[in-house]
Design a protein around this nucleic acid. Structure first.
Lengths: 315, 315
DNA sequence: CAGGGTGTGTCCACACTTTGGATAAAGTCT
DNA sequence: AGACTTTATCCAAAGTGTGGACACACCCTG
């Protein structure tokens, strides 16, 4: 989030920065004098020249102060943060995600749990929760799955990776769950389905859209979903179906789920769902296609929600 | 979202801590004066600077006080809890764990995810990881399972509880994993087994005994175990088997696992294993009986390990 | 049941620290 | 010329520390 997009290396004078950050200029000078944050360059005539990085530091400082932390302590935190993450200066990290995924895959290949733990923990500093999942964990898992199918990895290695990446993803989700959610969504894997990662990936998207996510987990029968909808009145329901079933059987299963969910909008994703677009459409669900822009799902969901509101108002 | 605020170890002033914990600042000062809990660092000007660890201590203290314990005693318990693992002196807080479990069950009955989350988080202040699991999570899950079988809870509620308590337990385990482990143990659920909680409970015991725990997770086939043993050379293997099979079939399954594990000592627990003591004995495994003192398992394991060392020395 | 002792949360007075903002005087930019 | 910056100094409000005091609830004992 650069303040100005057009000028890459723009420099600002103090009044501009004050307007940009909402921190009065006397305070900016006081902070610099007292805590050394930030330390802008100077012109020959000793005018302060703030860079985007400086503005970013000030923003963080202000945010911490707004949260109630004392400015002196906040400055301490920001200073340590700045020292700890010089690589994340947006310069090189184009392939940082890839490198992180590589490190994870490598640890799995060497069957080294300690290295895997470390690789995963390091990945968790590479951006927002969703970014980490979409660009590190998911690609790593996909490659590990592929190599397992190709016989180059043992099932033990696949299990190990699932366990560690699953834990890390759950932790990410816990860290970003909104405190004051706008809406609620219930997520579950359909009966017989035990692969949970896609569900957590979906959860991260919903969280970013402002939903509170309630996860029922693997192997959730239709009755359980019906109960949840009746008790929680979620704004939406998300299902995951990875294991492929024959068309007839899948239609039967999915109908039971659609009935259980009732008029609440629902989304379904996963490898199995991908192959039954028309069926899902007929049952009133939204298909989250693999590789599709997740925003499309969001838009479709918004349409359904608006429809429901209109219906409710009309009735 | 917040980038990595948790990565920077911040320090807080007294009012921030008061807001964070809900304990008024005069009380914080009184607690420090009277019980020495916590003992924050000071600035040069003798302002108190609380670390995250201090906040954690205060949260625990408050949690115990809220449950009716006298602050002086609570301070005693917390101090023992902080100094070393064995907070064995649980004279009066006997019902604190029970109250916590009750709160969890109640939230599940009301199908209230927010209340459940809060109840679980509060429980996590009540002692060492193992204590929390053994005396809060496990009893709560058992009761929830019972009431579900009795038809008083829906399967959705059971799923919800599993999800939240599972996540909390994984977090506990992550927090206590030793950095410099003495030994390694590989833990897994046998093929077709998808109940994971017992495995994590076992993991917490092994961690307390100084092991590094590598979890392969649910539905782990014998081949995966063989690979893991070959790659990691663990000192022991732990299996979990909840789903009951007929004797013949179980014998066949278990034999394949025993073969896969080889000469490494192995333990098996869970409802299904309980019914096949002689079989397990014949295959050279150690049965972890339900309700049995876990130390017995540890002792049996120590015997096997000593035998192996003798053999290795003799050969 | 009365009375003394105890544990506990809260409050107070007084001195010190932190912090945002104000002012003044001189220099700089446009 | 007028708007903006810089430095330095000052100020007032809010926060904090210390030690003690006080009211209330509780327990035990006579």
């Amino acid at each position: 989030m650069k303040p100005v997009a057009h000028a890459a290396n723009a420099q600002y004078r103090i009044q501009t920065v004050a307007r940009l950050t909402g921190v009065p200029s006397p305070t900016l000078r006081a902070w610099e004098r007292r805590y050394g944050i930030p330390s802008p360059q100077r012109t020959e005539s000793s005018y302060r020249l703030y860079t985007d990085a400086d503005v970013e530091l000030i923003r963080r400082l202000k945010e911490l102060c707004d949260q109630g932390m004392a400015p002196s302590q906040a400055a301490d935190v920001v200073r340590r943060m700045a020292e700890n993450e010089p690589p994340a200066v947006d310069e090189l990290p184009t392939d940082a995600w890839q490198v992180a995924a590589e490190r994870i895959i490598d640890a799995v290949k060497r069957f080294d749990p300690s290295a895997l733990e470390m690789a995963v923990q390091r990945s968790m500093l590479l951006g927002s929760a969703r970014t980490i999942f979409d660009r590190v964990f998911a690609p790593a898992l996909r490659r590990i799955g592929d190599e397992w199918h190709a016989g180059q990895l043992s099932i033990a290695q696949e299990h190990l990776a699932s366990e560690y990446l699953g834990n890390a993803t759950r932790e990410l989700l816990r860290l970003v769950q909104p405190t004051a959610p706008l809406r609620t969504v219930v997520l579950a894997c359909i009966a017989g389905e035990y692969h949970v990662m896609a569900l957590y990936g979906t959860a991260l998207h919903f969280v970013q859209w402002g939903y509170r996510v309630v996860i029922l987990g693997v192997d959730t029968p239709p009755e359980a979903l019906a109960d949840s909808v009746a008790s929680l009145h979620p704004h939406a329901v998300g299902l995951s179906a990875t294991q492929v079933h024959p068309r007839e059987q899948f239609a039967q299963i999915l109908t039971r789920y659609a009935d259980a969910i009732g008029p609440t909008p629902w989304v379904i994703g996963g490898h199995a769902a991908n192959q039954h677009g028309p069926l899902i459409d007929r049952l009133g669900g939204i298909l989250a296609r693999q590789g599709q822009d997740p925003e499309a799902v969001r838009d479709a969901l918004e349409v359904r929600l608006r429809e429901r509101r209109v219906e409710a108002a009309g009735a």
